[in-house]
Simulated assay, not measured.
Amino acid sequence: MPKPTVRTSGRHDLVLEQLMEAAEGLFSRQGVAGTSLQELADAVGLTRTGVYHYVSGKDELLEHLVRGFTLETAESLGALAVDTERPAAERLREAVASVARRVAEHPRRFRLLLTSEDSFPEPLAKQHRAARRDTLAALSSLIDAAKQDGSCRPVDTSLAAFALLGVANWVAFWYPPRGLDLSPAQVADQLADIALGGVLSDRTPDGVDSVPGALALLREDVTRLEHMLTSSRPSITP
């Protein structure tokens, strides 16, 4: 690969992305500690000194990887959780699809972050863990909002959140699918529909046309009401 000679903003971003892709492969095979800066430089056609024009070292590369994946995912879902102008079910579907799409676009990066957290510098590891908690909290908030407006079945919020994240995250271990020509966006959309099929309510605006169906909806409403009462009941401390 020719060495970059022009320090334009576009060129800088391009080389930085190349460095991150090289880091994904080398860190995955050799570990963070086992990868030298010279190996990263060789992978993108830079000198070791040239790498310092883009990052200060391996720790900053790791920070870019975490920022571009874990932290941006948390920020994206957090924005969806507070966007109350849109229906909760619509936002929940977008949240699941966005996580699945991000994983499908960078499956190796996700696997690297999953297995290398112990190698992160402590400040970065702390940000990474906090972002993962924020992602789960935002998804749980979206599920609760959908339960409140009746567009979601009265499922256990924590269980549903873990299940939906599990579906999205597992993409990293099988994408791209052998023999199927599906883009990350197509995979994400289909997975979101499949996963949310077991979470979102299937009641229709016209109601139901059978006694068993009506009873099932009544049971959902009773369970939802019990959940709302339990959630709103003040805790009593001795």
Score class of each variant (00 low, 15 high):
residue 32 V to D: 12
residue 31 G to F: 08
residue 64 H to I: 00
residue 47 T to P: 14
residue 38 Q to K: 12
residue 40 L to W: 06
residue 54 Y to R: 07
residue 62 L to N: 04
residue 57 G to T: 07
residue 43 A to D: 03
residue 38 Q to Y: 12
residue 58 K to D: 04
residue 49 T to W: 02
residue 46 L to N: 02
residue 43 A to L: 07
residue 57 G to L: 00
residue 60 E to T: 09
residue 60 E to P: 02
residue 56 S to Q: 12
residue 31 G to S: 14
residue 49 T to V: 06
residue 45 G to Q: 07
residue 55 V to D: 05
residue 35 T to V: 03
residue 46 L to Y: 11
residue 59 D to C: 08
residue 59 D to Q: 08
residue 36 S to W: 05
residue 66 V to Y: 01
residue 34 G to P: 14
residue 57 G to D: 15
residue 63 E to T: 13
residue 43 A to E: 06
residue 44 V to I: 11
residue 41 A to W: 00
residue 53 H to C: 01
residue 55 V to F: 05
residue 60 E to N: 02
residue 52 Y to R: 01
residue 65 L to D: 03
residue 45 G to D: 14
residue 61 L to H: 05
residue 45 G to S: 09
residue 47 T to C: 00
residue 55 V to S: 03
residue 39 E to N: 05
residue 36 S to L: 01
residue 54 Y to D: 11
residue 44 V to C: 06
residue 62 L to V: 07
residue 51 V to M: 00
residue 59 D to T: 06
residue 39 E to V: 00
residue 44 V to Y: 13
residue 43 A to R: 08
residue 62 L to Y: 10
residue 60 E to K: 12
residue 44 V to F: 05
residue 49 T to K: 04
residue 57 G to V: 02
residue 49 T to F: 00
residue 34 G to D: 09
residue 40 L to R: 03
residue 37 L to K: 05
residue 56 S to V: 03
residue 44 V to D: 06
residue 65 L to W: 00
residue 48 R to E: 15
residue 61 L to S: 06
residue 43 A to G: 03
residue 51 V to L: 14
residue 33 A to D: 14
residue 53 H to T: 15
residue 51 V to N: 13
residue 52 Y to I: 08
residue 43 A to Q: 08
residue 34 G to V: 05
residue 46 L to I: 13
residue 39 E to H: 05
residue 66 V to S: 04
residue 58 K to W: 11
residue 48 R to A: 12
residue 36 S to E: 14
residue 63 E to R: 06
residue 52 Y to C: 08
residue 42 D to W: 00
residue 65 L to V: 13
residue 57 G to K: 01
residue 63 E to H: 09
residue 46 L to C: 10
residue 55 V to N: 09
residue 44 V to R: 07
residue 59 D to F: 09
residue 47 T to I: 09
residue 35 T to W: 03
residue 40 L to D: 09
residue 51 V to A: 02
residue 48 R to C: 02
residue 41 A to S: 07
residue 37 L to H: 07
residue 49 T to R: 02
residue 49 T to S: 08
residue 51 V to D: 04
residue 41 A to Q: 09
residue 51 V to S: 02
residue 53 H to Q: 14
residue 55 V to A: 04
residue 59 D to K: 02
residue 64 H to Y: 13
residue 66 V to H: 08
residue 31 G to C: 07
residue 60 E to W: 06
residue 41 A to L: 04
residue 46 L to G: 10
residue 48 R to W: 00
residue 32 V to W: 05
residue 55 V to M: 00
residue 54 Y to P: 10
residue 31 G to P: 00
residue 32 V to P: 02
residue 31 G to H: 09
residue 32 V to C: 10
residue 48 R to S: 12
residue 57 G to M: 01
residue 34 G to K: 07
